[in-house]
């Protein structure tokens, strides 16, 4: 196709290159072209937050970004959270505190909570609720997620 464009980017520290139409959504590029299906597609119009990734270190919704906009960018997805076969402390907290049931929103919850805790390392419960309101969960009633984020906060702050 004539209007295919090349996209070079780094995902979880690994260089990737792909070719796609300019209209290809970043989330579809991540899943279909890079094969990283941990990032989920939910509402596809920037409401549910399931597709949230870190774009140059900041949480962003990959269903309302174009893949071509990620040329030269550094992305982090849920696949990059584990280190040396061990869960990330935030993932550990989600497991410990029953922060997921079906798991569909979890990748978006985790990536959103990472940026939230990076910019607010000692949040109040109200601030946690406001922070994760960016992502919709239909299973947990949010209480387990709030508990997990609260428990993870001091662990992540200590690791900085």
């Amino acid at each position: 196709m004539a209007d295919m464009m090349t996209v070079r980017l780094k995902v979880n520290g690994v260089e990737h290159e792909g070719r796609c139409e300019p209209r290809k959504l970043l989330v579809d590029f991540i899943r279909e072209d890079l094969g990283l299906t941990g990032t989920h597609v939910g509402c596809e119009h920037g409401i549910c937050g399931a597709c949230t990734i870190l774009f140059n270190g900041e949480a962003a919704r990959s269903c309302i970004m174009l893949a071509v906009q990620a040329e030269g960018a550094e992305l982090a997805t849920v696949e990059g959270l584990m280190r040396d076969g061990k869960l990330h402390p935030l993932q550990e907290a989600f497991r410990e505190h029953h922060g997921l049931q079906c798991g569909f929103c979890t990748p978006g919850m985790l990536m959103t909570a990472l940026d939230f805790l990076r910019t607010n390392p000692t949040p109040s419960e109200r601030e946690i609720r406001e922070g994760i309101s960016a992502v919709l969960c239909r299973c947990t009633g949010y209480q387990g997620i709030v508990n997990a984020v609260r428990a993870a906060a001091p662990v992540l702050a200590a690791g900085r």
């Binding site: 920037g46 937050g49 949230t52 774009f55 900041e58 949480a59 962003a60 919704r61 309302i64 970004m65 959103t112 940026d115 939230f116 910019t119 922070g131 309101s133 960016a134």
Partner: peptide, 8 residues
């Protein structure tokens, strides 16, 4: 919006 909206 929300945090991941305001980053963009």
């Amino acid at each position: 919006g929300h945090l991941p909206i305001r980053t963009r």
